[in-house]
């Protein structure tokens, strides 16, 4: 990937973090940790890999994204707003009565959201069904599925993975946000998931692991998945919960956090600094 494109994607990821924090700050608190850890992947998906039309969000041949860890909604909305699916200002309606931007992703509310999620595990089967349906319809598009590492404790995930590989859904790319933490703390303390790469391979996926905070690595892994073949793809994203904002990363219990005015100022200042360093 060209150096300039890499820089643009990194800047996009920072802007996604800033916008997600702006949305969460406007309502006072929310799922900060898991929104931050997935920002780089969202930047590469929407900045490079996915074929979508912001002006025509329901275009039948679009690539679809299923965010099965539906609580990362604010990061998804930030990305969609920056891509022009809806006005940026609307981010500040997050979780307000009557909003189009509820805490968990909702296909009937938000332009650009393809699948309704929030009950962990359920997005995985819907993604498999969507990929199967697209293939039967003869579409050339692909389905990207983001799964939380804690979410992967749900048995349903593994039922869907088994199904996807049995049906040879090579138009499905599963991205596992291996940020090591769930709600009650570290997976290793709650319910260790062991080796995700070995597990996905054993379930019949073409699997790689990348640094999920490095847009170049994510982009390269995604590029590989264009090849098709007879296996679904898995990309294990080695990430940090809260990635990109030091104070959030260092807060052990950062699943859901209040974003006070003070924190918002401080965190945004850090991100702005990173953006300036990048763009000059």
């Amino acid at each position: 990937m060209e150096y300039q494109e890499q820089k643009d994607l990194r800047a996009f990821a920072i802007r996604i973090r800033m916008a997600a924090l702006e949305a969460i700050h406007s309502i006072g608190s929310g799922h900060v940790g898991g929104a931050m850890s997935i920002a780089d992947t969202l930047a590469v998906l929407y900045g490079r890999e996915m074929n979508v039309r912001p002006e025509d969000p329901k275009w039948a041949d679009r690539d679809c994204l299923v965010v099965s860890k539906g609580h990362a909604g604010p990061a998804v909305y930030a990305t969609l707003a920056l891509k022009g699916f809806f006005p940026y200002e609307e981010l500040k309606t997050l979780n307000r009565g009557g909003t189009r931007l509820p805490s968990h992703c909702d296909r009937n509310k938000t332009p650009g959201v393809d699948v309704t999620t929030g009950s962990l595990g359920q997005g995985t089967s819907q993604a498999a069904g969507l990929a199967l349906g697209n293939r039967i319809k003869g579409r050339k598009n692909r389905v990207f599925l983001i799964v939380g590492d804690g979410e992967a404790e749900e048995g349903q995930c593994w039922e869907s993975f088994l199904f996807a590989s049995a049906k040879k859904l090579s138009n499905l790319v599963v991205l596992i946000d291996w940020n090591k933490r769930q709600l009650d703390g570290y997976l290793d303390d709650v319910l260790p998931m062991g080796d995700f790469v070995a597990k996905m391979e054993a379930f019949g996926f073409d699997t790689v692991m990348v640094d999920g905070g490095d847009v170049a690595q994510i982009a390269a892994a995604l590029e590989r998945t264009r090849a098709g073949g007879d296996k679904p793809y898995a990309i294990v994203l080695d990430t940090v919960k809260g990635h990109g904002v030091d104070e959030v990363e260092q807060t052990a219990m950062n699943h859901s956090m209040p974003v006070t005015d003070e924190r918002f100022e401080r965190w945004t200042a850090e991100l702005r600094q990173k953006l300036e360093a990048l763009e000059g």
């Binding site: 804690g150 404790e153 749900e154 009650d184 703390g185 219990m253």
Partner: peptide, 23 residues
């Protein structure tokens, strides 16, 4: 557990307070 204030106590009593994970 952290949503109903049992986490701290549970960590000290792992035999009788079991976190089953998201399952």
């Amino acid at each position: 557990m952290s949503c109903i204030s049992t986490l701290k106590w549970a960590k000290a009593n792992p035999e009788r307070a079991v976190d089953c994970g998201i399952a």
